[in-house]
Simulated assay, not measured.
Amino acid sequence: MKRIIFLLAVVGMAKTGVGQYRYGSFGSQVRLGFTLNPLVSVLKPQELGVTRNSAKAGLDFGLMADFSLNERGTYALASGFQVLLAGSKLKYDAGKGLSDYKPNPAEYNMKLTYIEIPLALKLKTQPHDAIGWWGQFGTYVDFPVSGRADIVSMNQTYDRVNILPQLNRINVGMLLGAGLEYPLGGNLTGLAGITYQNGFVDVTRNGKWNDGRVNMNSFALRLGIYF
């Protein structure tokens, strides 16, 4: 967590060097801001013997950056550095799941934390009545930094079991989003929209869980402020 705070601080200080320029104008190609995105994440099993019991409310927050591709700022590469809190509840039949709990059916309430780096092509309209609309399409890369599970097996509960070593070390997927931007006064611009992420990579290491592929998808309400 200390490393996360340090990196957020470094990028925040870098914003000071570009804050004096108007985004999209000559000499200003980068726009930075902060984002806070309430979301619902879903772990989606692809094999019999594993079922999803529920989704999980989560959060995605951190820095966002738009790298302008034209002078008007209507085309940009959207990226950032964010922390993703996600997870889901999965029920494993006997013979599946982690080895210590595999002999019996068990429910895993997974709480996962990732460092996320999105990369998308962002298209934005020219402002009309001070409001501009945007849409984006791209990808993202997630790196797990924490994984815990509350496990219930045969009426026994095991809290905060460390499952990080049993998670795949990278997750990649598709990113879609759309919304609007609106001025807040001064150099501040607000952002609101909806995003959808569809994971392509197995979240759990199949050799450890014997659960086939388990993908992670999410829907988020995207909120942010550009400076």
Rank of each mutant, 00 (worst) to 15 (best):
L184M: 04
R52D: 10
D93Y: 03
N70P: 08
G24R: 07
L98E: 05
A86C: 03
Q29K: 02
K102N: 00
R31F: 05
D129M: 04
S99P: 02
V18S: 08
K96A: 07
P144C: 06
W209E: 02
R205D: 15
M174Q: 09
T35P: 00
P118F: 05
Q136N: 03
E116P: 00
I194Q: 14
G17A: 14
D100C: 00
F67L: 10
S153W: 09
D100N: 12
P127Y: 10
G12H: 07
Y101P: 07
K89T: 14
F67Y: 11
F227R: 09
S79R: 03
T195F: 04
Y158N: 09
D211V: 02
L119N: 13
G185Y: 08
L119K: 08
Y114D: 03
Q136V: 04
E181I: 13
L63W: 13
G97H: 00
D159G: 11
G199H: 13
L39I: 07
S68C: 11
V201R: 09
N162W: 10
Y108Q: 00
L43A: 01
N187I: 04
A14W: 12
G132N: 04
D93E: 14
K111L: 10
N109L: 10
P144Y: 00
G49L: 11
G58D: 08
D129F: 04
G193P: 02
D150S: 10
R222G: 01
G138K: 00
M174W: 12
I4W: 15
S218P: 00
T113L: 11
Y75N: 07
G87E: 08
Q156F: 03
T195K: 01
S79Y: 12
